[in-house]
Design a protein around this nucleic acid. Structure first.
Lengths: 138, 138
DNA sequence: ATTGCTATTACACCCAGGTGCAATTGTAAG
DNA sequence: CTTACAATTGCACCTGGGTGTAATAGCAAT
């Protein structure tokens, strides 16, 4: 189901501002930080308030049209069709590595077994050191 | 090495403000949010500015005297001697469960093997649903 | 094409965390 | 016990993310 259809089905309106924000995220091949989205939107449609953008992003997230992750100190948005996976971000060079989510199934299982806790590991963003930076550093 | 000694060894001054902040964290058996620390400090020593407290906490973290974690939207500080462990926080009832860090060793290893990435999993704080809340919900 | 109702917007304002800077203070050396 | 100097403080101000609200605009029914 397309994003605009999903919105309509929920009784939500398809305003020009929303159309623009949806388009930007869908056209992105990768994830966008909130500030980037704000910059793009305001470049194409000056006067759009940042609170509108934050609220739209929240609505789109609730509707399942975009995914949000916390990357150390910012929020990051990406399109669901980009697939379910986590991101490894090198704290030295900033490089991003996509990471298969299956690697986390064992921990999820053991947290459940040991503590009865169902942890939410969707779209994890983790920081650390990539191979090159560790080698350079040695 | 005591915290004050560590500070002195780095050429840092032991001001009354710092002494107070250090004491508060060391006397805590558990973790403290930044706002709680600010409230405690300002109750005992009115006039201390929040930026001073944030700066002191950063210095103490760099010196290894306290550990910082990000808990969904706040920062959380705790004393190193509290031990290395992660926290599971229920997003429904707010309950906190301490979680053995050994559970994460397998993922750390597989991230290293598969991507050569050394992830920093110290003092993780994860949200999810605890057993009771899942049962109540069903 | 109007109307009416509800969702949405822009705005003003809030909050946590943080920075640059001039004035102040701890502390080591004389 | 001074002095000197760097470290620290409080302040003003900034930033990202977010909320309450009156005014506005989509959209469905007429």
């Amino acid at each position: 189901m397309s994003c605009s259809t999903t919105l309509k089905a929920k009784g939500l309106k398809l305003t020009p501002q929303r159309r623009l924000i949806v388009d930007i995220i869908h056209d992105a091949g990768t994830y966008f930080t909130a500030d980037k989205i704000i910059a793009y939107v305001q470049a194409r449609m000056p006067g759009v308030h940042k609170s509108t953008i934050y609220r739209t992003l929240e609505i789109l997230e609730d509707a399942g049209c975009v995914y949000k992750s916390e990357l150390s100190d910012h929020q990051v948005y990406h399109h669901p069709e980009e697939g379910y996976h986590h991101h490894l971000v090198c704290s030295k060079c900033g490089k991003t590595i996509e990471c298969d989510e299956d690697l986390f199934l064992p921990v999820e299982r053991s947290l459940m077994e040991k503590y009865g806790f169902h942890v939410n590991f969707k779209h994890l963003v983790m920081s650390g050191l990539c191979q090159e930076c560790r080698e350079k550093d040695h």
